[in-house]
């Protein structure tokens, strides 16, 4: 464990808790893409298949349970909570997210470290996580206004992946044969997707204006 990875995990934890707290407190999911939340629930479900077979550490297991619990809770709130679901804008959140799942699954079937069920599902979860934010970014561009909690959510998600890149650089130089090309490439692609959001997020923060994404 290094400071970059711990900071990354804490930032990731903060992103899901900020979102869950927002939805639970104000009983609204305005501006939140259900599609992205469903993709994230699938990412965690396919990545943490080893939660019962491989015990790594208490930290690792607790964090996996929190990520699984929070992502499925967020999906439940938006789909089934009698108040929250009324604020879900299904006419705007129209990204066909199965068009993201299929290529990720195909790629995982061809590009992986070893051809076992768990490894292919794990690789699928990496590819899917890289693109899972797209429905949310599309929704933000459509609705144009970003309430600051949704903006914070996207910002924290991007920051977590950015910190992981520093973690991989650190581990590459400190641990012999720590090489995981698939993880690195998927992580860099994911971070790049946030790059333009970060630019507009900082611009609005610097000029102290409401964050407006270009159409």
């Amino acid at each position: 464990m290094n400071i970059f990875r711990l900071a990354g995990d804490m930032t990731h934890l903060a992103s899901v808790l900020v979102l869950l707290l927002k939805i639970h407190t104000i009983k609204s999911c305005a501006g939140v893409s259900l599609k992205t939340q469903e993709l994230y629930a699938l990412v965690f479900a396919t990545r943490y298949l080893d939660i019962v077979t491989d015990f790594i550490s208490v930290y690792n297991t607790v964090m996996k349970l929190i990520f699984l619990g929070s992502s499925f809770s967020i999906v439940w709130y938006i789909r089934h909570h009698r108040v929250v679901r009324r604020s879900y804008d299904k006419d705007q959140d129209t990204f066909r997210h199965y068009l993201l799942m299929i290529p990720c699954m195909l790629l995982a079937l061809f590009v992986h470290e070893k051809f076992t069920f768990k490894e292919v599902m794990w690789t699928f979860s990496l590819y899917l996580e890289a693109v899972a934010i797209l429905p949310q970014l599309v929704l933000l561009q459509r609705t144009r206004n970003i309430d600051n909690l949704t903006g914070q959510y996207v910002f924290l998600l991007g920051a977590y992946r950015g910190l992981y890149i520093f973690n991989w650089i650190y581990r590459y130089f400190t641990e012999p044969h720590f090489v995981h090309w698939i993880t690195w490439i998927a992580g860099v692609v994911q971070t790049l997707l946030y790059a333009d959001f970060f630019y507009y997020y900082f611009e609005s923060w610097k000029n102290n204006v409401r964050l407006q994404l270009p159409a």
Binding site: R5, D9, I56, S57, F67, W122, Y164
Partner: peptide
Amino acid sequence: SIHEHEKDEL
């Protein structure tokens, strides 16, 4: 050798 944990990251 210790059981090297390949997947130790979240």
